[in-house]
Amino acid sequence: MNTKKSIELVEELLQRTESLMFNDEEGLKEITEEAKMIIRNVFKHNNDYLRSMNSTLFYSLAYPSSPEFDRTIWENGKRGYISTFKAMKRELELFGDQDEEVIVEEEMNVNHNEKNVFIVHGHDEALKQTVARTVDQIGLNSIILSEQDDDGKTVIEKFEGHASDCRFAIVLLSPDDIGYKRSDSPEKGAYRARQNVILELGYFIGKLSRKNVIAIVKDDPSGQLEIPSDIAGLLYTQFDNSDGWKLKLVKRLKACGYNVSADNL
């Protein structure tokens, strides 16, 4: 792609972002997907722009929140995108016509990236393996952090690196912990998912939007696994032995643009 055309595409992204209305999730999704496509094809030697976009938040992870705070987070996100797109445009204007060595990193391969599905899990090994193998069975790549090489990175660096290479996340909520209010007695404790699972659930909601995150809930024997109240708008499904959850997962993936079929199950 020539430099002039690349600049035109980035300029269009800038204009669309500047006119993006508050809480326009569909518009934000389109801008994000097109921007990442441009970065992968035009700036193959530089994934700093991808990292910048992936670290930009448009939704508050705080609870409780307020309309004013939500709008502030959204406007800050817009400014972050606009700053990134302006930097992209400036680089093209200054260096776009220069011949330079292009280093294509494996993780930037579009076909590989588009098939990656991140799986957040707790202590339930059987649940994790069942879901991961189902993802693999329908032709996608299940990304489980513990199964990836460290490459000398800290845990958070490793997490951010692999999370940035996925556009859909499956979060497994299993009854691993028991929690209760400080003022209550232990007898009032309720089963909960691990704290890191809830943290990563919030991370992916902010990073990918609710549409691209699904929670699979495996209840405790009493059927009373405590679900955070602020994810009421998140699509989640019960893990059941009749495998109905598999069909719901495939349906959700198809709605998010994945070419998958229940016939492969």
Rank of each mutant, 00 (worst) to 15 (best):
G233K: 11
L13N: 04
N23L: 11
K4V: 11
S52C: 03
S185K: 12
G179Q: 07
G161L: 05
Q148G: 02
D97Y: 06
V110G: 00
F43A: 01
S222L: 12
S183T: 15
G257D: 05
T154K: 06
G27K: 14
T130K: 15
M88S: 04
Y191Q: 12
E11Q: 10
L14K: 06
K158V: 02
F22C: 02
V260A: 08
V260K: 07
F43H: 00
S55H: 08
N212A: 03
I143F: 09
S242G: 03
V217W: 07
A62V: 09
K248V: 03
K5V: 13
G122K: 02
E93A: 06
S174V: 06
K78Q: 07
R252E: 14
G223H: 08
I39A: 00
F239T: 00
G223I: 10
N46E: 12
I156G: 06
K181A: 15
D99E: 13
M21L: 11
F22L: 15
S183C: 03
L14C: 06
R51Q: 02
A255Q: 13
F239P: 00
R252Y: 04
Y63R: 08
A169S: 15
N109Y: 05
Q195F: 07
I156C: 10
V10H: 02
D124A: 11
K5G: 09
T3R: 12
Y49H: 08
F239K: 02
W74R: 01
K115D: 07
F204W: 04
F58Y: 12
L208F: 11
S142E: 01
R16D: 15
L225V: 14
L20I: 14
D220G: 02
A126V: 11
L92E: 01
L247A: 14
N54P: 00
S164C: 07
K211Q: 13
N23Y: 13
A232L: 08
L57E: 10
K246W: 06
R40K: 11
T84Q: 01
I73G: 00
N76G: 11
R167P: 00
I31E: 02
K246T: 11
D97C: 01
N111I: 10
L127P: 04
R167C: 03
E106R: 03
L61P: 07
V217Y: 09
E114P: 02
E187C: 12
V213M: 07
R167F: 09
G27L: 13
K44W: 07
A126I: 03
S83V: 08
D97M: 09
I103S: 00
I119G: 01
E18V: 15
D240N: 12
M108Q: 05
N212T: 07
E114C: 10
L247F: 13
L13T: 12
S174E: 04
S164A: 07
Y180D: 07
V171M: 02
Y258F: 15
E114S: 13
L249I: 12
Q98A: 03
